[in-house]
Design a protein around this nucleic acid. Structure first.
Lengths: 362, 362
DNA sequence: ACGAATGCCGTTACCGCTAACATATCGCAG
DNA sequence: CTGCGATATGTTAGCGGTAACGGCATTCGT
């Protein structure tokens, strides 16, 4: 599944002022061009172009005449031709793994927040966590010659890496900084995030810890969190008591099911670390429903800091992934508005905060 | 916030076969064109074009030569120029109010499912339930000359209506069919859905019914559901005992809060009808937490049939909004694959099924 | 009062690619 | 061996805009 979006920018659509008590008289057989507007208003195409783009000097009287004609005809400029002629495209390719998990929509919000004042439009492609799909989405998007690329993760196919490196436009890899970016990167260290959570859990006195997560081979960030987590456990002389993976289906439901499976199989478990908040919430609901003492008997923690958690009976421990900020900074880099004056090649690390909520003792 | 996505189509990206043990030798100062590939392979630009589009007769030997050169150089075709020359654009504009509420991503999935075999790419624009925003997003997207438009709802500004009517491409208005489409429409009758739910609730013996919903003046579908709902209540000689609206924030949390407010203010209430599943789920969790007997003392129902409900302790009554199917049918119409041979102007009504779950008596 | 600096608008040459047509090359029936 | 249809490739002319520059009035400074 792929999605792509386009929003408005500050250029006022001429249509917004159309009075249009009734639709234009002449229904257009072929689509309108600058020439039609120029003929209707008695000036050259160039002048019409200038008026519609608000560029260059045009007298108020002719500007009025041109706008009136454009409105009357219902002219919509052809950006394809414009982009070809000007060699400028106001699109920014945004390539993300999924839209259905709450995290990327928020990144998109951050991106749009910033891009909205720049005349740039985000265009989203979804890869479903497939590297091949990512490669073809990227290829497809690059063929529209966007002025920048924001892409999730640092792991790409060789061909995708090559395309990114050669594109000649700003590239920002987001979410993750544990690796080597092609150009710029904005994100958090998931390895460190995993470590931090493990340290907090150990400090709270839990010792029999289980991991529950997704079985996506290409979810590198979840993998890195687990690696960091286990690394910190090892440093404390501990190791995971149990682990459980899932794929597909309702995350909330899977969270319940996996939790039940783990607690049944390994009754000694006193902490459940989930790879995301959604399954964590499912697990939490299960525990509460079963009357398990949380966080006394069993502690829980997720990852992401999704808004949904606010609605749960008690707050799940989690770690904010800085989604909004990641989107904002990435967009700033693309639009050249980022504070550091450098031109590309920067790695911006953000630091997530651990929210202990009500599901970790202490 | 705006988003837009592009996926792959069946055209194989030449890059996928790039061996690329190392990146191309010559880092390109200016971006490559057909001419570069044609010079590198000793044939005309036209022949290169034919090879890359897999169109027309080209001998196997030259095809190989051309592909090899394209791969070696890392050539990515310029769709802007191609679209301008061929007057064909493989993009479909998809304009929706939001991406953060679980319902539209599923519509997108349906759209992509179908479009994936057609060479068409969905491009998403998000309006945040603002008519003006919708108008400018539409204007922006039309200026890229897509080959079709899928847009949520039947209510648009006058200018937007005019643009849709004049665009000269297939338009499909989705989600709702209670109104007059510009061209085609695919959706359900929300008025009827509201009525049906009211009838089921009344039949189950509930009499003191409250409504809890969003305060979005432009969420016409929620409004129509409420209208249908009240209409059916009236027919049974009933009227809403209480109502509560919210906007913004975590829907799950708002559901809790609103439910508490209503139950405190109107203790006689025996049924809570929510305008969406998310706040319904929040309400359900609240009731369970408070030890309220559901569905004995209080019944609950939402709308949408979101997957999340599967993870709740008991199943919330809801009504499936046929999201996937709506997306699929809309995409079929755009791509000319829809069964009915007609060319536009059809209204396809889908019929949601009421799932009583565990929160309505009987 | 006169050259320079503007304001306003038109002309020309592309942007990179493809439709349509033109041309070459080959095989093979007559 | 000629001729004609297939096959393979090249040539030409845009697609609908915009950058760059040019020309012609006005206005202005000194």
């Amino acid at each position: 599944m792929d999605i792509c979006g386009i929003g408005d920018n500050k250029v006022e659509t001429i249509s917004q002022a159309i009075p249009l008590s009734k639709p234009p008289i002449t229904e257009p057989r072929r689509t309108l061009t600058l020439r039609d507007v120029s003929e209707a208003s008695g000036v050259s195409e160039m002048t019409v172009s200038r008026v519609l783009r608000n560029r260059g000097d045009v007298s108020d009287s002719t500007r009025e005449r041109v706008l009136e004609a454009a409105r009357r005809l219902g002219y919509v400029p052809n950006k394809i031709a414009g982009a070809l002629a000007s060699q400028r495209v106001n699109l920014v390719a945004v390539i993300i793994p999924s839209l259905s998990n709450m995290v990327f929509p928020e990144v998109m919000t951050g991106i749009s927040d910033i891009l909205d004042d720049t005349g740039l439009q985000p265009v989203v492609g979804v890869t479903n966590y497939s590297p091949d799909r990512e490669e073809s989405v990227l290829y497809e998007m690059l063929s529209w010659r966007p002025s920048g690329v924001i892409i999730a993760g640092l792991e790409h196919t060789e061909a995708a890496q090559a395309m990114l490196a050669q594109a000649g436009i700003p590239i920002v890899e987001i979410m993750d900084i544990d690796g080597n970016p092609v150009d710029s990167a904005v994100g958090i260290s998931h390895r460190r995030a995993g470590r931090q959570m493990a340290e907090a859990i150990i400090a709270a006195g839990y010792r029999n810890i289980a991991f529950l997560g997704t079985m996506m081979p290409y979810d590198h960030r979840a993998r890195k969190r687990l690696e960091g987590f286990e690394e910190a456990l090892a440093k404390a002389g501990l190791s995971l008591v149990d682990r459980e993976f899932y794929s597909g289906g309702s995350a909330l439901l899977k969270g319940r099911e996996m939790t039940e499976a783990v607690l049944t199989r390994s009754p000694q478990v006193d902490f459940l670390y989930y790879s995301n908040d959604m399954i964590g919430a499912g697990g939490l609901l299960y525990c509460l429903h079963k009357g398990i003492d949380v966080p006394g008997q069993v502690g829980l923690a997720g990852f992401n800091g999704v808004e949904l958690l606010d609605g749960l009976p008690i707050k799940l421990a989690t770690m904010d992934a800085c989604r909004l900020e990641i989107g904002r900074v990435a967009a700033e880099i693309i639009s050249g508005k980022h504070s550091s004056g450098t031109i590309g090649g920067e790695v911006i690390e953000l630091f997530p905060t651990l929210q202990k909520g009500d599901t970790i003792r202490g």
